[in-house]
Simulated assay, not measured.
Amino acid sequence: MRRFSFNRLAQTVSSPQLLHPRNLHQGRYDIPALVGAEPQLAAFVRANPDGRPTIDFADQAAVLMLNKALLAKYYQVKYWQLPQDYLCPPIPGRADYVHYLADLLARSYPALPTGKQIQLLDIGTGANVIYPIIAVQSYGWQVTGTDIDTVAVKAAALIVASNAALKPRISIVAQPDANAIFSGVIAAEQRFHLTMCNPPFFASAAEADAASNRKWTNLAKAGQSGRNFAGQQHELWCDGGELKFVSRMISQSQLFKPQVCWFSSLVSQQKHLAPLQKLLRSVGAVQSEVIEMRQGQKVSRILAWSFLSAEQQQHWCRETA
Rank of each mutant, 00 (worst) to 15 (best):
F44Y: 15
V45D: 05
A47V: 02
A47W: 00
A47P: 00
P49A: 10
P49Y: 10
D50M: 09
G51W: 13
P53R: 12
T54H: 07
I55W: 09
I55E: 09
I55P: 06
I55R: 03
D56A: 07
F57T: 05
F57C: 01
A62H: 12
V63Q: 07
L64P: 00
M65G: 00
M65R: 11
L66S: 08
K68G: 09
A69E: 14
L70T: 04
L71N: 04
L71K: 11
L71M: 11
L71P: 09
A72P: 08
A72Q: 08
Y74S: 11
Y74G: 04
Y75A: 04
Q76L: 04
Q76D: 10
Y79P: 00
Y79F: 12
Q81F: 02
Q81I: 03
P83T: 15
Q84T: 13
D85I: 00
L87I: 13
L87S: 04
P90L: 11
I91Y: 00
I91C: 01
P92W: 05
G93I: 14
G93H: 07
G93V: 11
R94D: 04
D96N: 13
D96T: 14
D96K: 09
Y97D: 14
Y97L: 12
Y97H: 12
V98C: 12
V98P: 05
H99D: 13
H99N: 14
L101N: 06
A102S: 14
D103S: 07
D103Y: 07
L104Q: 08
L105T: 04
A106H: 08
S108N: 10
S108V: 01
S108C: 05
Y109R: 04
L112I: 10
L112M: 14
P113W: 10
G115H: 08
K116N: 11
K116V: 06
Q119M: 04
Q119T: 06
L120N: 03
